[in-house]
Simulated scan of single mutants.
Amino acid sequence: MRVEFPGFGRILVDGKVYEGDIVIYPSGKVGERKKWLSKRKHGTSHKLDPDELREYLTEEFDVLIVGTGAWGKLSLLPESGELVANKEVIEKPTGEAVELFNDLRGRRKVLAIFHITC
């Protein structure tokens, strides 16, 4: 599996273009980020709420990578961090997060959440 972030508003997974935020599970399944769960509570989808994060904790993983957007606007709320306190959590702007994902993917069980705009 290869992920590319050509720029604001688009992400590619094995050549397939996605124009919305995505989640990539350790199994390789790609899903839509359920950002409305965070937006409903906080008025913005730039805060990753525990209710939203719980939706993605369906497979065993070692590392959570959060691509925070082109300009780093998405952040993991402290309460969300508590849900994954026993895991390695890495938050980086999406371009850097994609590079890290590609590097770790074959060696570790990675759960990745990518915000593809701001």
Rank of each mutant, 00 (worst) to 15 (best):
L48V: 14
H46Q: 00
K35A: 06
S45D: 15
S45I: 07
G31T: 14
I22K: 02
G43C: 02
D51P: 08
K47R: 15
D51T: 12
D51I: 13
G20K: 14
F8I: 12
P50T: 10
G43A: 03
K39M: 08
P26L: 03
R40S: 13
K16N: 11
F8Q: 10
L53V: 09
G31I: 12
S27V: 04
S27F: 04
V30G: 00
K41L: 14
G15M: 04
L48A: 08
G15Y: 03
V13D: 02
E19S: 15
Y18M: 04
P50D: 08
G20R: 15
L12V: 04
G20D: 12
G43S: 04
I24T: 01
I22Y: 02
Y25L: 15
S27N: 05
S38Q: 06
F8D: 11
S38G: 08
I22S: 02
I11K: 03
K16E: 14
W36T: 12
D14V: 00
R54A: 13
D51E: 15
P26Y: 01
I22F: 03
K41S: 10
S38C: 06
K47L: 14
R10T: 09
D49K: 07
R54H: 11
E32M: 13
Y25F: 15
S27W: 04
L37C: 09
P50W: 09
K29H: 10
R33Q: 08
D21I: 04
G15V: 03
D21G: 08
R54K: 15
G9N: 09
I24A: 03
L12E: 07
F8H: 15
R10E: 12
L53A: 08
I22M: 04
T44A: 05
R40I: 12
K39C: 07
R40Q: 13
K47F: 12
S27K: 04
P6K: 01
V23H: 03
S45M: 10
V13T: 02
G31C: 13
L48H: 07
D51M: 11
K16V: 15
K35H: 09
G15R: 07
G28T: 02
S38M: 05
I24G: 00
R33T: 06
E52F: 05
V30T: 01
H42Q: 10
P6E: 00
P50M: 10
S45A: 14
K34D: 12
D21H: 06
L37F: 11
L48S: 07
V23T: 06
I11W: 03
D21E: 06
D49F: 04
H42I: 06
E32W: 13
G31H: 08
K39Y: 09
F8P: 09
H46C: 00
R54M: 13
G7T: 00
D14T: 00
V30S: 01
K41V: 10
R54V: 11
S45R: 11
L53H: 07
Y18Q: 05
V23S: 04
L12R: 10
D14C: 00
D51A: 14
